[in-house]
């Protein structure tokens, strides 16, 4: 693990001297994930940021440390290597302390149009298996301490299967269902679990997308996710109009829906 260098300035304590637990973001090379990690650091949480691309995670940790003068540590991880996850969570807590906030920001849409068993396995293992595994392990740590908030960045694509991206959508939908169960299990132990369903955000996934639908900034999305987490909301649609859009899409009877090209 690498420690970001914020120069030799004194590390800042949290807001009004409150000692905050660690915030961790898995998949910090997602722009919304990076913005969220920065938001947590601005609020005084020491942060751990992880990505498959470890060098990139390290640059992001350095950025957070320079901007906020808060401890920011980075590491690499592989969402699909679930057998490594328990040791990973232990090592994160050893480095930044007890985890109080966790965000799952990684996702894998697969390659356009490739629909073969290997691709399907990758999509399911990253978006569903890997995310569920990490959430489960961190939820247990939080439950033992009686507090913590977990959020997963999902997608409106998980609300209904459509021919354009149903492999990705089904994995995200399955994760939402899993987290629903986890939320139910850890609620009584003071731990909260939220699913954020993001519409079009100005990221790699929407670059060059020709659409009349408004595209939200990653920064605005990070503020919305953070507020919803702190308010312990069960789910969040961002931008908010997507709740209405998906409400309509979910309400269309399957008999008709299967004839549409969406």
């Amino acid at each position: 693990m690498e420690r970001g260098e914020g120069g030799n300035e004194q590390p800042r304590s949290g807001v009004e001297g409150a000692v905050r637990g660690a915030a961790v973001v898995f998949g910090v090379t997602s722009r919304v994930g990076r913005e969220l990690a920065l938001r947590f650091a601005e609020r005084g949480h020491p942060v751990w940021v992880g990505a498959r691309d470890q060098a990139e995670a390290e640059r992001i940790a350095k950025d957070i440390a320079v901007r906020t003068r808060v401890v920011a540590i980075s590491g690499g991880f592989d969402a699909r290597a679930v057998e490594t996850h328990a040791a990973l969570v232990s090592s994160i807590e050893a480095a930044v302390g007890p985890i109080e906030r966790m965000v799952i920001a990684f996702g894998d849409m697969g390659d356009d149009g490739r629909r073969d068993p290997q691709m399907l396995r990758r999509i399911v293992e990253v978006n569903y298996l890997g995310a569920a595994s990490l959430a489960e392990l961190v939820a247990d740590q939080m439950a033992a301490r009686g507090r913590g908030i977990i959020a997963a960045l999902g997608s409106v694509a998980g609300d209904r299967g459509r021919q354009s991206n149903y492999a990705y959508g089904s994995a995200k939908g399955a994760l939402a269902l899993y987290l629903q169960g986890l939320r139910n299990r850890v609620f009584s132990k003071g731990v909260h679990v939220m699913t954020a369903k993001l519409g079009f955000i100005d990221t790699r996934m929407t670059w060059g997308l020709a659409t009349k639908i408004p595209i939200a900034s990653p920064e605005a999305a990070s503020h919305a996710v953070l507020e919803a987490m702190e308010a312990r909301r069960d789910d969040l649609y961002w931008p908010p109009f997507w709740r209405g859009v998906m409400g309509v899409i979910k309400a269309i009877p399957e008999a008709g829906f299967k004839r549409l090209s969406l």
């Binding site: 260098e5 120069g7 030799n8 722009r31 640059r59 950025d63």
Partner: peptide, 30 residues
């Protein structure tokens, strides 16, 4: 523009290392 990370800063000397996509506005803001 998306490669916009601050990489190191030394307040004793003022040396700042930052990625090329960082704007001058961002440097001033921070």
């Amino acid at each position: 523009t998306r490669l916009d990370r601050f990489l190191a800063f030394d307040p004793a000397t003022g040396w700042l290392k930052a990625e090329a996509g960082v704007s001058l506005e961002e440097v001033l803001r921070v």
